[in-house]
């Protein structure tokens, strides 16, 4: 494992911890898109179907369980927790996220590394992850004032994606037979989606003002 991959996994882990911290201690999920969280729960469930068929390492297994468990529990909290669910911006979070799933499934059926159930589900999870942040970005744009934790959550997610791109470049040059076109293309698309948010985030940080996205 290289430093970019490890740093990428850690920023991903921190992003989840920031979100859980917000939900557990402040009992609020204001500014967080349930649509995006539901998509992530589906992404991890469909990607980690190999959890019981392929053993890679203890690290890999534990991280998979953390991402599965945390994404499902975040959805549960936002939907069912009697205090947390009241802070959910339901009227603002209107992205029709189910419409994203069908094209991703069709694309996975057409473009995959091998036409097997696990491989098609794996490709589907990558395509869906690439666009899963969209409802969250739309919600951020609608919310006038973005609190620090929400901003940090999206920033950490973006950092995780950028570090994974560096990890792929590093692995491509240091490992033989390391070629994953599906992962790369969908990963780069996903990283580009964050670029716009990053721009405004750094502007507000530089000018030391509260983050506000243009309407």
């Amino acid at each position: 494992m290289n430093i970019f991959r490890l740093a990428g996994d850690m920023t991903h882990l921190f992003s989840v911890l920031v979100l859980l911290l917000k939900i557990h201690t402040i009992k609020s999920c204001a500014g967080i898109s349930l649509k995006t969280q539901e998509l992530y729960a589906i992404v991890f469930t469909t990607r980690y179907l190999d959890l019981f068929t392929t053993y890679i390492s203890l690290y890999n297994t534990i991280m998979k369980l953390i991402f599965l468990g945390s994404s499902i529990s975040i959805v549960w909290y936002m939907r069912h927790h009697k205090v947390v669910r009241r802070s959910y911006d339901k009227d603002q979070d209107t992205f029709r996220h189910y419409l994203l799933m069908l094209p991703c499934l069709l694309l996975a059926l057409l473009i995959n590394e091998k036409f097997t159930f696990l491989e098609v589900m794996w490709a589907f999870s990558l395509y869906l992850e690439a666009v899963a942040i969209l409802p969250q970005l739309v919600l951020l744009q609608r919310t006038r004032n973005i609190d620090n934790l929400t901003g940090q959550y999206v920033l950490l997610l973006g950092a995780y994606r950028a570090l994974y791109v560096l990890n792929w470049i590093y692995r491509y040059f240091t490992e033989e037979n390391y070629v994953h076109w599906i992962t790369w293309v969908s990963g780069i698309v996903q990283t580009l989606l964050y670029a716009d948010f990053f721009y405004y985030y750094f502007q507000s940080w530089k000018n030391n003002v509260k983050l506000q996205l243009p309407a």
């Binding site: 392929t54 390492s57 890999n60 994974y164 990890n167 490992e175 390391y178 994953h180």
Partner: peptide, 10 residues
């Protein structure tokens, strides 16, 4: 996945 090309990323 082929040898050396496992889905070992998260």
């Amino acid at each position: 996945p082929t040898e050396g090309n496992l889905h070992d990323e998260l």
